[in-house]
Each structure stands twice: as structure tokens, then as C-alpha cells.
Amino acid sequence: MVAVVVEAGIVAVVVGIGMTLYRMVKGPHVADRVLAGDVLSLQVVALVILLAVDQRRAVSLDVALLVAIVGFASTLAFAQYIGATRSGPQPPDEGEGG
């Protein structure tokens, strides 16, 4: 029973990863891509948890925590990047054209 759920779950997670990749490729704004990456990392966490359930070992849960931390850190880094490149004192538009 659990084995069937794990098999189906892998399919569901892969479908979810496909959806986030679609958003990452298509996303009209950088924020859309970064948010797709965030969801993608959480889908990978879900995959690792399924691995832990399948193996019935707690060691794999460490990997889940690590992937979650790395995903969070990269989201923060990209958010800082978006904020740093687009905000702050706006360059005068007219000055560049001349």
C-alpha cells in the first residue's frame, strides 16, 4: 500500500517539477522564475522524503533538511538580486538617451 503511494507520489512530484519548470521558462518577470525555483526546491524536498519513506530510514530526512536550507538560501539570494538591480535610486531615463 505504502509502496504504491510512493510510486504514485514520484509521478506526482515529477509532474509538479514539470509545471514549475514551465513557469521558470515562461515566467514574464524574474520574480516568477525565482518563485518557480523556490517551489522546485520544495518539490525536491518532497522527493527526498519519499525516498526516506521508501527506504524506511531516517538518514534521508537529513538530506531533506539540507535541500530545504539550500533552497531557502538561494531564494533569499535571488530576492536580494532582484531588489538590488531594480530598486534604489532610479537612473534618470532621459540622461541615457542623449
Binding site: H29, V30, A31, V34, L35, D38, L42, V45, L61, A64, L65, A68, I69, F72, T75, L76, F78, A79, Q80, I82, G83, T85, R86, S87
Partner: peptide, 25 residues
């Protein structure tokens, strides 16, 4: 992992929403 996720997921989305708004999304 749960405690980390419950703190990190909202904070990550705050950061993203904030910088997206600043970037004129």
C-alpha cells in the same frame, strides 16, 4: 525540518514579494 519550513517559507515569500514590488512587477 518542519520548524525550518514554517519559518523559512513565509520569509522567503516576503522577500520575494518585497523585491518584486520594488522592481515594479
Amino acid at each position: 525540518t518542519l520548524v525550518f519550513t514554517f519559518v523559512a517559507a513565509p520569509v522567503g515569500s516576503h522577500m520575494l514579494a518585497r523585491s518584486a514590488h520594488a522592481a515594479g512587477l
